[in-house]
Structure formats: structure tokens, C-alpha cells
Design a protein around this nucleic acid. Structure first.
Lengths: 242, 242
DNA sequence: CGTACGTTTGAGACTCCTCAATTTCTGTGG
DNA sequence: CCACAGAAATTGAGGAGTCTCAAACGTACG
């Protein structure tokens, strides 16, 4: 860990200032770095859950298999994200998680985090804030997925990812890595891969957005935000209880 | 409050056994009953939030107004539910809440609940479990709304409500009150009211489900569950960390 | 160079939407 | 109890958006 900030401390820090002490305690929770490879499944839906993990490097996604054989991607995790924090009070996994590319994770014991809250109420409070924030993101996404056109869905998802990336890396320009196939985008958006392709092609011709070879290029960020009806990044207007 | 169990204690009790002490402390949080009338807005999106509330009687719903003028219903609250618990660590409301019919609510101070966690870690743990459960329900719903046909959506929502009602009232039969107009169902499902009407008409003719005058009658529960691809009520396979 | 996988394109079908007209329900005052 | 007005629900017709199936094309990697 050393001088580098742990993922948990970094996320919690968005919702309030951490004492040196709390920061150390959080950093101490994160286990040793474990290398994981593209496609590797971190856990399956229904597995017993005794820990969650932080994603130090690489992208991941959580998903569920539906009765009709289709797959739905619930969440996309970016480098620096915490995976499964919001489920930490359950014994079983609610969804499976797999890597989108090679990366590095650190396991964290549910129990240890839980015990930590006994010592620091402010940490508990921050954890609530983090979970609430994620729930808010989920609601927001639900609204956008359930009643919007393919163009809006695609624009929204790309913009959401962009906002989240920028949250961690402030200097982020319009070009960024996007290790998602169109099939995976389709699974996340509730569209067919064919239609995702058509939509992306249209965006490219209109000069809004170009996606190729694992990279996204937002050629007209403003128009894309308008297309996706993005109303300011969610975290801009959400403040936690101290 | 007297011998009757408070809403918070009841909900928390689903995830573990409450000590007498904890139960009393929870019950003490709930303020005096306040009468509210149909259509009344409890709060608006963006309002400052210093409390959440329990819904002793009547149905309610949370919603957001979209940029394009449409309205989306995020959540439907049944009698006995807790409204806004999961946002309790935020200063601002993430969505508006309004009553579907006359009812009765009790306000609870965010701060007081928060302070209570300092005294009882097990209550805190249970609260996490409740919030996680609700997030799980939200994910489940997101999956069902984003990639499913109108028939499946309608069947799913009705079945979800049925499961939640039965959770509180075990002897619930196939008939139950449903104070939602087709317009409101449409807003919750991301469909047009016209198509909701057609879908309900089809279900009625097929002998699956009848909705009229604020009452729902599940004529063939099994077929309806099949139609909605309902894979067992969510809470059946979710256990909290003690 | 060949194979596998991901992407693009085309054609036809189906679902759901919009608009508009009509019917049914609900509540209110006479 | 009835008449009425407003709201909610139904029905029809036409159209937009998305799906499926299938084939062609590109690209990455052995």
C-alpha cells in the first residue's frame, strides 16, 4: 500500500474527509494484490460471500443469466472501483462478476469491514453514503434503460462511463479505453448486438462518437450528452450526511 | 405504539432477531402518525432531507420527472413499508414521493437513526441488510424492465407486488387491492398507457389476471409467474450477515 | 495463411407507439 | 335516484423502432 491510497479510502473520501486513522484502518483491510486474467470469473451468483474486493487494475462487470438464456450485465466496474460492497451484508452473491481484461484485485473480508464500523461511526456513515450513491446510479440507469430509444441508451451509457472515469482521472480527454464488445454493450443496454452496431455506426457518421478496437472517442461530447438526456453527473448534486 | 410493532422493527426483523431493547429503540424513533391524502406529495426531488418516514396505511410511490416531460415511477410503497430509508445518508431527496391513496405516515429523523447505530452495531448491520435487499430488488426490476416484452413486464410487476404483500400478510389470496391506474402502471413499466390496457385485456381474456376498480385478481398465479419469468421471490434466497 | 471472433449490412417481421374516437367508470350536485 | 362532467379505460389504424435471421466483411491471433 505504502504512500498510495487504497481503493476503499479513495471512494469513501468522496463523501467526507477521512481521518488519518480511518484511512489507515481502511487501507489495512485490503488484502494482497491478486492477478486475474481476462474472462476470469471472480464469483458466481449464489456463491457464499465472505468478502468483497477492490479492483486495482482492469475492468470488470457483474451479470446475471436469465431464464431464457440471455445474459444481462448489471454493472460495469472501472479500475479503482469497489466490487460487491453494497452486498456485503449478504451471505450469497446476487450476481456473478467477471473480468473484461487482465487486472489486479484485492480481497476484503466482509467481517473485518463490519467490525471496523464498531470503532468508527463516521466510516459506517460513509459506507452508507457510498452504497446509497450506487443505488442512485442504479435507479438513474433503470430509468434510462426502461423507456428510452437505442440512441439514448447508448449515449447515456457512454456518458456515464466517461463521467465515472473522469471522476478518478480529472484530466481525462475525449479518448478513453473501452474494453467492451458490442455484444457486451448490448447485454448491458438490453438491445440486440445488431442494433448496437447500427446505432454506433450512425453516431460515427454523425460525428458524435467513434468506438473501435477497444477505444472510444467522444467527438462531440455536448451533442452526445444531449442525445443521452444526461442531466449533469449524478454525484454533482448528491451530498452525504456527515 | 403500545403492543403493536413499528414498521422499522418489522422490516429489520426480516433479517435477524431483534433484542427487546433494540425493538424499543426502533419503535421510539417513529414519530406521531400524520394523516396524508391521496395525491399528496410527501417531498420533491432535490428537497433537503432530514428525515425519512414509515408508511402505516395507504400506498405511495416515488417518481422522477424526466427532461422530455415524461414521468417515471421508481418504486411503489405498500402499507408497512419504509420510505426513503436507503437515501438516509444523503442531504437531498433523489426522487419525489406521492400518495396513491389516503394514508398515514410517521416521520423518522435521519440523525436519530444514525445515532442509534452507535449504540447497536447489530441494528446497523440489519439496516445495511434492508438497504441491500432493496437494491437487489431494484436490480432485479431493472433487468426485467430493460429487455422484456410488455406482457412480461406487466406480469412481473404484478407478481412482485403480490410477493411483497404476502410477505406482510401471509394469508393473502389471489385477490388484493391495487390502487394504481393504468397510466401509473405505464409510468412504472416504461410502457404507454394504451399498451398497458391492451396487455391487461389480453391477460383477462386468457384467464391470467383481472384488474378493475382498484382491485387485482390473479386468476392463474402459476401461469402469471411463468409469463413474468419470476424465479422465486427474491427474499427467499437472500440471507443477511448476522 | 487459416481460423475464430467480432462487426457490418440487408430484408422482413413483430412489438410497441402515437393519435384519435369511443365507451365505461367515478364522483358530484340537483 | 338521476344527470352530468371529468377521468380512466378501450379500441382501431397507421407508423416508427427494434428484433431475428442470414450473409458478407474485418480484424486479431495462432
Amino acid at each position: 500500500m505504502g504512500q498510495q491510497e487504497g481503493c476503499i479510502a479513495h471512494h469513501f473520501g468522496h463523501y467526507g474527509t477521512l481521518s488519518e486513522n480511518d484511512r489507515h484502518r481502511l487501507d489495512a483491510l485490503e488484502g494482497a494484490a491478486v492477478d486475474v486474467i481476462k474472462g476470469q470469473v471472480l464469483w458466481h451468483e449464489g456463491d457464499i460471500a465472505r468478502e468483497f474486493c477492490t479492483l486495482g487494475r482492469g475492468w470488470a462487470y457483474s451479470f446475471r443469466h436469465m431464464e431464457d438464456g440471455t445474459r444481462h450485465i448489471l454493472e460495469i466496474f472501472l479500475p479503482g472501483d469497489i466490487i460487491g460492497l453494497c452486498e456485503f451484508s449478504f451471505k450469497q452473491r446476487l450476481s456473478s462478476v467477471a473480468m473484461l481484461e487482465d487486472g489486479e484485485i484485492r480481497l476484503v473480508s466482509n467481517r473485518q469491514l463490519h467490525d471496523l464500523f464498531r470503532q468508527s461511526t463516521s466510516l459506517m456513515s460513509l459506507c452508507f453514503a457510498v452504497c446509497s450513491y450506487q443505488q442512485a446510479v442504479l435507479s438513474e440507469r433503470m430509468v434510462h434503460l426502461s423507456r428510452r430509444s437505442a440512441r439514448q441508451r447508448v449515449a447515456y451509457l457512454l456518458f456515464e462511463i466517461f463521467c465515472r472515469l473522469r471522476r478518478r482521472n480529472d484530466g481525462l480527454e475525449e479518448c478513453f479505453r473501452l474494453p467492451l464488445s458490442q455484444q457486451q454493450l448490448a447485454d448491458a443496454l438490453g438491445l440486440s448486438p445488431v442494433h448496437v452496431s447500427r446505432t454506433l455506426t450512425a453516431f460515427r457518421h454523425e460525428g458524435l462518437l467513434k468506438i473501435a478496437r477497444g477505444w472510444a472517442h467522444m467527438m462531440d461530447r455536448r451533442a452526445l450528452a444531449r442525445e443521452g438526456s444526461v442531466s449533469g453527473c449524478l454525484h454533482d448534486h448528491v451530498e452525504p450526511l456527515v
